[in-house]
Write a protein that binds this DNA or RNA. Structure first.
Lengths: 140, 140
DNA sequence: CTAACATATGAACAGATGTTCATATGTTAG
DNA sequence: CTAACATATGAACATCTGTTCATATGTTAG
């Protein structure tokens, strides 16, 4: 059999049970994952950031990010379906804005996290930390 | 020319300038995006969730999620490189845990957000809202 | 009505991504 | 030492994803 997860079981049933019990509900997890997935694209992340303060029309976003109208529009659809943005029509324009303030909070938090994580790691440069993130690395 | 972002400019320069000025720093944005990207995969999301309370070894995770040891190990590498988890070795086992408490906070926040977003939308079922998220939809 | 423009979207294609399979590395027991 | 086991990783492969191109829809001006 090749699909035994580990050849023999040197597993820790208590921990497993504990984890299974404490884990968030499956659907919640899936939806949160979807949210992250949508945020996890550079273009969409820029778009969200551009909308942090103002509403913008498709053309504005296109110009601001230096991307084609089509690409922007496709991405806006994804953001719309994920309920991250809403829009209003005004004449020929469609003005997009963030759907609610949770988004801003999450983005800010993620940025703070990144800043802290990449700060003050002895003997390593910001761009050189790619692996071996273990106990030896003294990061409080 | 086909690469003019909009055929003629019906753009809103003030808004664009405002957005450009208020946008987070490019590198911060990129790193935050990376974080979201890593969190935006169902398997990794489950792994993170499983580690919310306890540390677990590769075998435990494999068993708990019903996935091959190899798949888990590959994903752990990604989580490690993104500095979302750390591990310690104890004999043959490698026990993984979350790198810091920001992660938990971000995950929790995302879950809360999902719950609120999908709550109490008149005339729509949780699974049926896939598009047309516009002003007509009365969601405060 | 038609022309001009802003936006949306389907199809196609290239590049990214996750899993599997095979195998390598590293640790412990004997 | 060797055998057994836990973990890591390279290669291959199928799927997913983002952009482009072409075109459709919808609005306004004339």
């Amino acid at each position: 059999m090749n699909d035994a997860y580990c050849t023999k079981f040197d597993t820790h049933p208590e921990r497993i049970r504990g984890a299974a019990y404490a884990m968030p509900d499956g659907q919640d997890l899936q939806e949160a994952g979807e949210l992250f997935k949508v945020l996890g694209d550079p273009t969409r992340m820029q778009m969200i950031s551009a909308l942090l303060t103002n509403e913008l029309c498709v053309c504005d976003l296109s110009e601001l990010l230096g991307m084609s109208q089509s690409a922007i529009s496709h991405q806006l659809r994804i953001l719309r379906q994920a309920r991250l943005v809403r829009y209003r029509r005004e004449g020929k324009n469609a003005f997009y804005r963030l759907a609610d303030s949770h988004i801003q909070l999450i983005v800010q938090l993620a940025i703070e996290h990144s800043r802290e994580i990449y700060k003050d790691i002895p003997g390593k440069d910001r761009d050189l930390q790619n692996d071996s993130y273990d106990d030896a690395t003294t990061l409080l």
